[in-house]
Design a binder for these strands. Structure first.
Lengths: 124, 124
DNA sequence: CGGGATCCCCACGGATACTG
DNA sequence: CAGTATCCGTGGGGATCCCG
């Protein structure tokens, strides 16, 4: 479980802190985006599309997203086990905002990388 | 300087990773939002509105945001020193997206907290 | 297959002291 | 005032093993 309680405790109702401490972490948005792209995915299916995430972190991220009602977890009583993850309706409502961020990033990434380079030069 | 180079190295042009590793960190969006709310702020002015950030972290966040051209840093040659931070035009273009996230969070926070509580109960 | 439990390292980040 | 430098604790997170 991610440890976000410290600052949430200081500002328990601050929406920006709440949203950032949850979906703004290293992997959550990427998981949501990947689920939206492929509809429904199993645990290792997700890991396939996000190769540089560890099982531990993927598991933790999924647990947080499930706890917040952004994804649903469907377990099939089979052997070997089969678990499917999907966006919930609430999770779907977050997708447009994520897409907006991706669009913004795509449109600005070239200039930002350039600025970043120049900044490093002038601060060597 | 925040350590985001590891995953950026794997996906150097992935916009979602790029945007998240920069503005999705613990403080950046909050700094941008605070600057937008107050127009122009000095270092300690920012700290006043974000009391639970340390000088070290605020300094690091400001450096990243400046390197990415999202805020501008104006130094006055005075004693004692005076430094003013403002959003750049590029930084301004990010504000609507941040506001959308805040609106979404505000609209959903109550239900999310409720779901979160129930999830904890069923996973005790 | 889908995780949980454990071990362990090191980077994040707070506190303090110092400087131009 | 606006930071930087240094020290240092802790918890984020990888690697590995295990289990239903």
């Amino acid at each position: 479980m991610l440890k976000t309680e410290v600052n949430d405790a200081l500002f328990p109702t601050c929406p920006i802190r709440n949203v950032l401490s949850r979906i703004g972490d290293k992997w959550s948005m990427l998981v949501l985006y990947t689920l939206e792209q492929h509809g429904v995915l199993r645990f290792n299916g997700l890991k396939l599309y996000i190769p540089d995430i560890s099982k531990k972190m993927l598991s933790a991220a999924l647990k947080v997203l499930e706890a917040d009602g952004l994804i649903s977890r469907k377990v099939y009583a089979e052997i070997p086990p089969k678990v499917e993850y999907t966006l919930t309706e609430r999770g779907q409502t977050l997708i447009p905002l994520i897409n907006n961020l991706i669009e913004w990033a795509s449109a600005n990434i070239t200039d930002i990388v350039e600025d970043r380079k120049n900044f490093l030069i002038h601060n060597s």
